[in-house]
Each structure stands twice: as C-alpha cells, then as structure tokens.
Design a protein around this nucleic acid. Structure first.
Lengths: 193, 193
DNA sequence: GAGTGGTGAGACAGGTCTGTCTCATACATA
DNA sequence: TATGTATGAGACAGACCTGTCTCACCACTC
C-alpha cells in the first residue's frame, strides 16, 4: 500500500509552516522549528522545497488558493452583487473572531520581503490583485468597468485597514465600520451611475 | 571642548537604523549592519541602547513624534475640518511618491512582532491610536463624538489600506481612491448629523 | 611625565540560521 | 531475495546573530 504518493508529507509541511509563520513571522521561524513541529526529517523538507523562500511562496499560494475557491463559489451564487460584497465582509468578521487570528499573512510577508523582485513579494501581489479583480467582477454587475475598478480598490483598502486594526484592537468595531463604509460606497456608486 | 553631550551619536544611530529597518525589515537588519552604516563602535551603540528591541522602540517612537508634531501644527491651523482631513491625505500622497517609500514602518513592525505584550507591538498601537485620536478631534468639530470615533476609524483603515496598496502597485491611484472615499464619508457624516 | 576619562576597533562567546551530507530503516514490487 | 523509493536521524559546514569584553588611542589635566 503506497502511503499516498508523496504529497502527504509535503502538504503537512506546508500547513505546519503556515501556522508557525502566522504566529511568529517568517524570519523568526526557523527551518528546525518547522520540521520539529511537522515531525518530519530535515531532508524530507528539503527534498520537497529547494529553499525556505520557496516554501514560503508555497504556503502563500496555498492560502491564496483556498480563499480563491471560496470566492469562486460566491461568484456563482444567485444573489445580488451587494449581498456578495457583504458576504466577503462577513467572512472577515468571522476570521477576526477566530481563535488564533494574527493579521493578514500576505501583508506580513510584504513587510518582511519588501523587494518587488522577490518571489514572496510577487506572491503577495498575485493574491491581492486576485481579490481586487474578483470584487471588481462582482461590482461590474451593477456599475461600469472603470467605476468598478476604483470601487474595488477602495473596498480592498477598507479590508486591509480593517485587518490591521483588528490585529491591534477591538476586531468587531473594525469590521463593522469597514462594512458600513463599504456598503455606503457601493450604494452611492450604483445610484450615480 | 565636549563634542556635544552624547546625544549626537545616539540620534545618528536612531536615524541610520530607521533607514535600514525601513528597507530590509527588523529581523533581517543586523546590529553589525547598523553600526557599520552609522559608523560608530558597537560599544557606543550598546551604551545608549540596552538591546536591539529597545532601539527598535526608540526608532518607532522617534518617527511617531515627528508625525505627531505635524499633526499638532495642523490642529492649530484656522481651516475647516474637511480641509484638515484633506491635508492628511495630501501628506500621504507626497510620502507615497517619495524616493524610497517602502510602506508603513509601524505596520511592518506589527508583522514582525505580533505578541501584544511586546514593547514593539505596544509602540505601534500607541502610534496608530494617536493618529486616530487626532483625526477624531478634527472630526468632532463637525459631528458628535460617537460618530467621529467611528469615522476616524474608517479613515484610518483607508489610510492603512492605501499605504499597503501603494507599496504593491500604482501609488497615485491608491491615494486618489482613498481620498475620494474619505471625503465622501466625512461629507455624508456631516449631513446626517 | 603621569594619570584620567571617553571613545573606537575588533576579538570573542554562545547561540541560531540555512542548507548538505551520510547512513539506517521501512516498505512495495519484481 | 533483490531492488527501488521515501523517509528518519542527526552530524556537519559556514555564515550570521546578539551582546560582552579587552585593549589601544587620544586629548586633557596635574
């Protein structure tokens, strides 16, 4: 019986690394800590990931993919666009309340890898642009493309700002204010179209 | 002749560390790099700062103080509150366009020091709360206190989000959208009062 | 000339980091 | 039994980290 090709251990390392990176940051989390927590040999890790940086990119892409799938399902639901946007804010409210919420891993990655040429930086840009693009698609159901682009960027800012504030203080107030502002902007943009 | 008490060297270390932390992050910037760039002896640095963490706090507090002074001057100007808020966004637009803009140092510090009990975390919370409080004061000139608190939080989110987006992509579009949204929210809150 | 006090230069300790390497083990298949 | 593959365990190299310590230097004073 094959213990499932290879991907078992590989995926386990990715998920363990995710938890550790989220809690302590990227530079502060050593390879030794990751393999100890994942309970794999160091060589097992390095056989799957040529370097720590590539592991970080893998972790980010993995999380981005999970969120993307949620957004894909949302896009196909038969509800009005306002409600779809509201749903995204609801998800964030839930996330902020979760047991070990430590802010946005992508924002943290940007803080530690500020070089635009670095693969980690590029992975962050991919994720944020992806979220913005999906929000824009939703908004295009109710306003022209140019307007939708601008509103999507504003909503993304509110989300990012709320995530940062939620990490520092009362998360409930943060997401409530952000949601209210977002809904106001969306409503105003629909009317003025 | 005393070469000016001691504080000359001390301040020089703080400013050098600021530039390096901003570019490469906190964990990735070593003490050796700081003293080499500042051209001081290692003992000179450790005589002024008992540890790297305390140097980081000092750097953050120094930047917070500079921004606070700007806000103090703004508060005393005889212009309408909307214009004061607009001025804060103008400052950010300038900042985003500056030569070595690398995002918000405080947000980056939060990413690397996520423990709420850590002195660096506390320094970040101080700065962000300070900015929010000052914006609330401005807004209280034109709306009730409770409303002002909520609007100030929303403006802070827009600013933080715009700063993050500006680090990733076109900074001009980011601050323009944020400013437009902020002014809309302020205007709506004044009317509905 | 002898002493004093502040400073720089850099060795050093003890730890941690990433990444490589060897060897043993377990298991499936031929 | 023989072989191939994925893994585990851990030593190891070489670099880097923070923080301490010694020593040389230099200006000034007595």
């Amino acid at each position: 019986m094959t213990p499932s090709p290879v991907s078992d251990k590989r995926q386990h390392v990715v998920e363990t690394a995710y938890v550790l990176f989220k809690r302590a940051g990227f530079h502060a989390t050593g390879i030794d800590r990751i393999i100890a927590e994942a309970d794999v040999a160091k060589m097992t890790m390095y056989r799957h990931f040529p370097s720590k940086d590539e592991l970080i990119v893998e972790v980010l892409d993995y999380r981005a993919m999970r969120f993307d799938r949620q957004l894909d399902r949302l896009a196909q639901e038969g509800i009005p666009p306002e409600q779809k946007i509201g749903r995204i804010f609801d998800w964030h409210a839930l996330w902020f309340r979760s047991a070990d919420f430590h802010g946005c891993l992508f924002a943290h990655a940007l803080a530690e890898f500020g070089d635009p040429g670095h693969p980690v930086f590029k992975a962050v840009v991919r994720q944020k642009n992806g979220l913005k693009r999906r929000m824009r698609s939703i908004l295009e159901e109710m306003m022209p493309r140019g307007r939708a682009e601008s509103v999507a960027a504003t909503l993304l800012m509110l989300i990012e700002g709320a995530t940062l504030l939620a990490q520092m203080g009362p998360a409930d107030a943060a997401i409530r204010d952000a949601r209210k502002a977002a809904m106001g902007i969306v409503a105003a943009s629909r009317k003025s179209q």
